[in-house]
Design a protein around this nucleic acid. Sequence first.
DNA 1: TATTGTTATACTCTATAACTATA
DNA 2: TATAGTTATAGAGTATAACAATA
Lengths: 172, 172
Amino acid sequence: MTTPQSVEADLGWALFATVRYYRQISEDVLAELPGGARGYQVLAAAGRGDPSSQLALAQQLGVDRTVMTYLLDDLETAGLVERKPDPADRRARRILLTDAGEAALCDAHRCLRAAEETLLEPLEPAEREGLRSMLHRLATRTDPSGTPINCTEAAALTDPEPLPPRRRRARR
Amino acid sequence: MTTPQSVEADLGWALFATVRYYRQISEDVLAELPGGARGYQVLAAAGRGDPSSQLALAQQLGVDRTVMTYLLDDLETAGLVERKPDPADRRARRILLTDAGEAALCDAHRCLRAAEETLLEPLEPAEREGLRSMLHRLATRTDPSGTPINCTEAAALTDPEPLPPRRRRARR
DNA sequence: TATTGTTATACTCTATAACTATA
DNA sequence: TATAGTTATAGAGTATAACAATA
């Protein structure tokens, strides 16, 4: 039998649970920051002086470009970022931090680091850097293969029919 | 200055990006399984013969009990689980795997393990177990303190006003 | 023609509230 | 009275499609 002995042995479950926890503490700490953890990441990217078009930011954060528009609307309304037309491509806009945005980023970064230490508390100090390093490598993978993952056997076993219509069925 | 030099130094960003990747590969691999990765985790918990009331499962997966109802509806419709009244508490229902559910779980587990190895490819083989162990400990933390995290300084700096109404403002 | 950004709209997911049945 | 589960509804969050401006 190859099934796991406990949920905890499940990498996916552990990942989701950890992210859930991270989301919670970052929401507490960044409650006043528009967009929460996501807003922070936008500020961090802009503060680094990256190329930072809206599209580039959206791809970096793994969200749709329309979502980035709303996110930046909130950050701009709060006075933390500016949208400046890119002189090299007048379709694009470069996202720049305001002074207030810089201060907010710096402060949020400090708070987040403290919260992260709480998150990482169950680990040995030496392990914490190891985890950061590993997640960093996983997140920045070059993904050279591009080989699409499929597992048709599983598909066939679990359910031959495509079960197209989902959810909301009446009963009783 | 204490701001990070790159997004990649941001633990939150790395976590989110990794989960995004995991979600993608697990969706590919578990496409036919109702509920995707979440459905798999329900099957895995049920297959373990845990207490497994719907509420217990919901808490384990970090979802609302109403979400668990919908999830189990789909799994039951697909013939993978059964809801059996708990003889000890007739309000509750124990979630049991059917034979088809057992087969689907076993197969999904095998496929998922393979997909996880793809995910973990950037790491040394020895590191992979270390990552699993660390995430396991983070996810199963006892959280003895319960001290609520707050960071009022950050709140004050980033935005004194609570900015209550959010999103969808007209422009132009 | 293709791309960036915006807007409106539709859809999906999740949470809230009300209810039934048990305790 | 409180809890497990269900259902309908409302609310987030996200994606789709159409458009303007620019390449």
